[in-house]
Amino acid sequence: MTRPPRLPSLDALMAFEAVARAGSFEAAADELALTASAVAKRVAGLEERLAQPLFLRQPPRGLALTPAGHEYLPQVRQALALLQAMPLHQRASTQRERLRVSSTPTFARQLLVPALPAFQAQHPQVELELTLSVPLLAEGDAGADVEIRHGAVPDELAPAQVLLRDHLTPLAAPALLARHAPLRTPADLLQLPLLRTPLQPWAPWWRAAGLPGTPEPDQGPRFVDLGLTLAAALAGQGVALARLSLARHERAEGRLCQPFALTVPAERHYGLVCHRPSPAAEAFAHWLHAHCAAVEAENLSGAT
Score class of each variant (00 low, 15 high):
Arg3His: 13
Leu7Met: 14
Ser9Glu: 14
Met14Arg: 12
Ala15Cys: 13
Ala18Leu: 05
Gly23Pro: 04
Ser24Val: 00
Phe25Glu: 03
Ala28Ile: 06
Asp30Ile: 01
Leu34Gln: 08
Ala40Val: 03
Arg49Leu: 15
Leu56Asp: 13
Leu56Ala: 11
Pro59His: 01
Pro60Gln: 08
Gln78Val: 10
Ala85Asp: 10
Glu97Met: 10
Leu99His: 03
Leu99Trp: 05
Ser102Leu: 09
Ser103Cys: 13
Pro105Lys: 09
Leu111Pro: 02
Val113Ala: 14
Val113Phe: 14
Pro117Asp: 11
Gln120Ile: 05
Ala121Val: 10
Gln122Tyr: 06
His123Pro: 11
Val126Ser: 05
Leu136Pro: 11
Asp141Cys: 10
Asp145Ser: 11
Val153Thr: 07
Asp155Trp: 05
Pro159Gln: 10
Leu164Thr: 06
His167Ala: 14
Ala172Thr: 09
Leu177Lys: 07
Arg179Lys: 07
Leu183Asn: 07
Thr185Ile: 09
Leu190Val: 00
Pro193Gly: 01
Arg196Tyr: 07
Pro198Arg: 08
Pro198His: 11
Trp206Gln: 04
Ala209Asp: 09
Pro221Trp: 00
Phe223Tyr: 14
Asp225Pro: 10
Thr229Tyr: 02
Gly236Arg: 10
Gln237Phe: 05
Gln237Thr: 08
Val239Leu: 12
Leu241Glu: 00
Ala266Ser: 10
Leu272Glu: 06
Arg276Val: 07
Glu282Asn: 10
Leu288His: 03
Ala294Gly: 11
Ala297Phe: 07
